[in-house]
Each structure stands twice: as C-alpha cells, then as structure tokens.
Amino acid sequence: MAVGTIDRIAERAARITPFGAANRMRGLSDRAIAWIFIMPSILILLAINIFPLLWTVYLSFTNYRANQPGRPVQWIGTANYERILSSGDIWGYLQVTAHFVVWTMLIQVALGLGLALLINRGFKTSSFWTTVILIPMMLSPAVVGTFWTYLYQPQTGIFSYIIDVFANVGAVDMIGSIHLAPWAIVIVDTWMWTPYIMLLCLAGLRSIPAYLYEAAEIDRANGLQKFWYVTLPRVLPFLMLAVLFRGIENFKMFDMVVELTSGGPGSATELASINLKREAFESWRTGYSSAYAVILFVTVFGLGNIYVKALNRVKS
C-alpha cells in the first residue's frame, strides 16, 4: 500500500472521530487507560472472590444460620473460633487430614520421581506407557472413589484377592477397618495423582541440558552423584511446585473420600473439608462453619506462603 494511501486513511479516520471522544481520550494518562482496561476484571474478582471472603470473615463472628433467615443475627465475637479450637473432634479431623496430606505427598513424590526417571530413559514403548500412566489422573475423583469401593470389597474385590494371594491373610476389609481405612484413601489418591507428579518431574528432567551430564561424565561422576548433583537440583523446583499444588488440593480433598468411605468408619477418614461441609450444608451452622473455613484458609495460606519462600530459595 502506498504511503499516500495510508495518509489519506489516517486523515479520514481523524476527521470522523468525534471531537469530544478524542479530547477525552487525549486527556487520559497511560495509567488511567490501563486502569480502564483492567477494571472489569478487578470488579469481577472483587465480586466473586474478595467480597465472599470478607463476608465469610464477618459471618464467622456471628451466630448466623442460612436456613433460618428470620432469626436475628448476633455478633458473638470469637465464640465460634474458641469452640472450634477447643473441640477435640475438630483436632481429630485435622489429624486425619494431616495424615492424608503428608503420606500422599511422600509416597507420590517418591513414586512420581521414580516413574519420571524411568520414562525419561526413553525406552522403546515409553510414550505408550506415559499415556497409560496418565489415565487415572483424567478420571473424575467421584468416579474413582466409587469404583474403588468395589475394588476394596472384601469378598469380591480384586484388591483383597491380590493381598490374600500374596500374604494369605484372608479377606481384607480396607474400608471397614479403622486402622486400614486411612491408608485406603492414601492408596487411591496415590493411584490417581502420582502421574501428575510424574508429569511435572518429567518436564524438569527434559529441561536439563545434556552438556551437564557430559561434564559430570568428564569429572568421572557415578550414577548416584549425577543424580544428586545434576538431576535433583534441576528437578527440585518442579517437584516442589507439584507438591505445592497437590498439597493444597489434598488439604481440601472431598469428593473421592466421600464416595469411598463417607468419612468412616466412625471418623477415621473424616477429613476437615468433609466435616466442614457437614457443618455448613447439613447442620446449617453458617457462622460456625465460616469460622471453620477461615481457620482452614489461614492454615493453608500460611503453610503455602512458607513453602513458596522455600521454593524461591531453592530456585535461587
């Protein structure tokens, strides 16, 4: 297009632009224009994220019940918090949650890293096996919880059958035993989410330049030394990120465990999030459950922040 033509188009555009609008835009700073662009997003964020959070904090200091709209809402100070923090039952649920989070993370990190190292060797059918390993991660947690109840069935389930074949211990009631049920949920979560850790580790492994290994070879490093001094430091940020994501997810785990055990037997697998849901939407103790939610939020937020600082240190 000739220069003359472009000039003519620009001139015409300037002529048809209303004077008022042009003046108004001309008067705005870059910062103001930037604000205009991001304001809708900020408003949406405030409406659906920040406001509910602040509202929850407010409700946590009241006796509000969402199913009793006519009941006067009273400010009860920190009574809900005191009640929660002095409840042995709630500490029990938090212990169950901690057991679940810690063990799933430990086992999944070990298995995920191991699988990633194996897949990264690039053997003949590694692509096929990568796809197969990823399948559990793509399923719905509720579906996974439901079908594992059948696998764990002591009389007809394949899990019990396999254990019996190898250990000759008869029918194993994974879900009905208070000692085994906490491990039953760890096993299912590990089966489902180890591929996720593996995937992130694999991304880390694939990002390590080959010359680092060549340099290690020249320095006559053995396999363990190469893993310790080359592989692990490079994969660690990826691994820590995976642990952060999975840790937060597992702290609020709900659907899979509800389908699998409903929190039982007794309260052996009653995670904090399951109990919170019971309080909020079955018992309708809205103020109380708001305080409960705030405590869980602060816990996750606090632990997450400490972890992110550690992650940044590892990265630097």
């Binding site: 009905g176 208070i178 037997p265 007794g266 309260s267 019971r278 018992s283 309708w284």
Partner: peptide, 21 residues
C-alpha cells in the same frame, strides 16, 4: 434442627459400633 441432631448421632454411634471407639 433435626439435621444437626442426626449428624451428631451418626458420628457418635458409628464411632462406637463400627470404629470401636
């Protein structure tokens, strides 16, 4: 408040009967 009363009984009874608590 039946739902709240029910939740409490579910927990206490299941804890005792099934979970041996």
């Amino acid at each position: 408040t039946y739902a709240e009363l029910l939740q409490a009984m579910q927990k206490r009874v299941h804890d005792y009967v099934v979970a041996d608590k």
